[in-house]
């Protein structure tokens, strides 16, 4: 059997909050090394879809597969916990509000999970923290606390923390939306660097320029469905759907 198996495979994802259907039968495949942007108006279900991928917001129905393994498997509680913790180690996630651990230093933020989950020694953990901070250009902040960093620096540390687990897939949920405009670029630079290193990424963003320059594919979501998807040139220059056109026009007006 040579049937092709997508790296990330979301099949018929449905999510309901009571009566409210937030995701309506969404299917999405992402290949290894692909970079996919998800755009759409507020409340369209972008975050919910992204957070279904690591089962942070479990789906009501449908399946999520990563590299041939079903993420949202039905298992008894303890077995499920073991399974999902294993899966999550392979999926890095970056949040809008960073969610750094404020009681730990930058170094400890990065080393906590690898130490606990991979059983590496203190020395190995320190080397790892140094490497990751070197990578995002913050080695001189290694012994700072998160409260002593700017928003852009916090987000770069959050990315370094996720990368320290050596994930196969990175999820970004509006990583730059909470930043002052002048700090957006430094975070975008780090994400571009990851793109060049061929990391597989799914990026929820409001920054069309960034999506266009970095991503291979763009999904436009509205009202819990994928209205339109395609190459960035197509979605941004020649969208076919009226809703996409409206959204992009409104967005452009908002930016001006």
């Amino acid at each position: 059997m040579t049937h092709h198996r997508p790296f990330v495979d979301i099949r018929h994802a449905q999510k309901c909050y009571g009566e409210l259907e937030v995701l309506k039968d969404i299917s999405l495949q992402v290949e290894q090394k692909q970079i996919v942007a998800i755009i759409g108006p507020s409340g369209s279900g972008k975050s919910t879809l992204l957070r279904a991928i690591n089962d942070l917001d479990p789906l009501t129905s449908g399946e999520v597969w990563l590299d041939g393994v079903q993420v949202n498997k039905l298992l008894p509680h303890t077995q499920y916990e073991k399974h999902i913790n294993q899966i999550r180690q392979q999926i890095g996630m970056v949040f809008q509000h960073f969610n750094l651990f404020p009681h730990l230093t930058v170094r400890e933020n990065i080393t906590l999970a690898p130490k606990l989950l991979k059983g590496i020694s203190d020395d190995e953990a320190n080397v790892l923290a140094e490497q990751q901070l070197e990578h995002v250009g913050l080695i001189d902040r290694i012994d700072y606390h998160p409260s002593q960093l700017s928003g852009g620096q916090k987000q770069r540390v959050a990315i370094a923390r996720a990368l320290a687990m050596k994930p196969k897939l990175m999820l970004f949920d509006e990583a730059t939306s909470a930043l002052d405009p002048e700090l957006v670029e430094e975070v975008n630079q780090v994400m571009k660097m990851l793109a060049e290193e061929a990391m597989t990424m799914i990026i929820v963003t409001h920054e069309m320029g960034f999506a266009e320059s970095v991503c291979d594919r763009v999904l436009f979501m509205d009202g819990g469905v994928v209205v339109e998807e395609g190459a960035p040139e197509v979605i941004f220059r020649n969208p076919t759907q009226e809703r996409t056109k409206n959204f992009l026009r409104k967005h452009l007006e908002g930016v001006k």
Binding site: N54, L56, E81, N85, Q86, I87, R88, Q89, I91, G92, M93, F95, H97, N99, L100, F101, L112, A113, L116, L117, A158, R161, A162, M165
Partner: peptide, 13 residues
């Protein structure tokens, strides 16, 4: 968000 960040890294509850 603190729990989410920890769980996302693969930590148990």
């Amino acid at each position: 968000g603190q729990t989410e960040a920890a769980r996302t890294l693969g930590m148990s509850s």
